[in-house]
Measured scan of single mutants.
Amino acid sequence: TETREFDNEEEARKEAERLRRKGQDVQIRKKGNRWELRRT
């Protein structure tokens, strides 16, 4: 599992969408005042 953190939700969602188009399974969750993007 690979995780990346983003400062805002929009960036996290854009990156998640990009990875999903490549066929990756991605989850986003709020972590304090940041957003965590998890690739499984």
Rank of each mutant, 00 (worst) to 15 (best):
D25M: 13
Q24A: 10
E10L: 08
R29I: 15
N8Q: 05
T3S: 10
E11A: 09
I28H: 01
Q24D: 09
I28W: 02
A16K: 04
A16D: 01
E11T: 05
L19Y: 07
D7N: 06
Q27A: 08
E11I: 04
E17V: 07
D25G: 07
E36K: 02
E10Q: 10
D7I: 07
W35D: 02
E15V: 07
F6V: 02
E10D: 11
Q27D: 08
T1Q: 12
E9Q: 06
E17N: 10
E17T: 07
R21Q: 12
E10F: 11
N8C: 04
E9G: 03
E2K: 09
D25P: 09
K22V: 10
E9A: 06
T1Y: 14
D7W: 06
R34S: 08
R38I: 15
R4Q: 13
E36I: 13
G32L: 02
D7F: 06
A16N: 00
R18D: 08
K14I: 11
D7H: 06
E10G: 07
E10S: 07
R29H: 13
L37W: 01
E2P: 09
T40L: 13
K30G: 03
G32H: 03
D25T: 13
R34N: 07
R20L: 07
A16M: 12
R21Y: 06
E11H: 04
G32A: 03
G23V: 00
F6Y: 10
T3R: 09
V26P: 03
R39S: 15
R34H: 11
T40Q: 11
R20D: 02
E15S: 03
K22H: 12
G32P: 00
E11F: 03
R38P: 02
N33W: 03
R13D: 05
R20K: 09
R4Y: 14
K22I: 13
R34A: 07
L19I: 04
N33H: 06
A12L: 03
R4G: 05
E10T: 08
R29Q: 11
Q27M: 10
G32E: 05
R39E: 15
G23S: 02
E2I: 13
R38K: 12
R29E: 12
K22E: 14
T3C: 14
G23Y: 04
R29G: 06
R34L: 11
I28L: 10
K30L: 06
N8W: 03
F6T: 01
N33P: 10
Q24T: 08
R13A: 08
E9W: 15
A12R: 00
A16Y: 12
E5N: 06
E17I: 08
R18M: 11
N33Q: 07
W35N: 02
E36T: 05
E36M: 04
A12N: 00
F6D: 01
D25E: 12
K30V: 06
R38M: 14
T1S: 12
F6H: 01
E15K: 02
Q24I: 15
R18K: 10
K14M: 11
G23M: 03
K14L: 11
I28F: 03
A12P: 01
E17P: 00
N8G: 04
D25V: 13
L37A: 02
R20F: 05
G32W: 01
D25R: 11
E5L: 14
T1D: 12
W35I: 02
W35L: 02
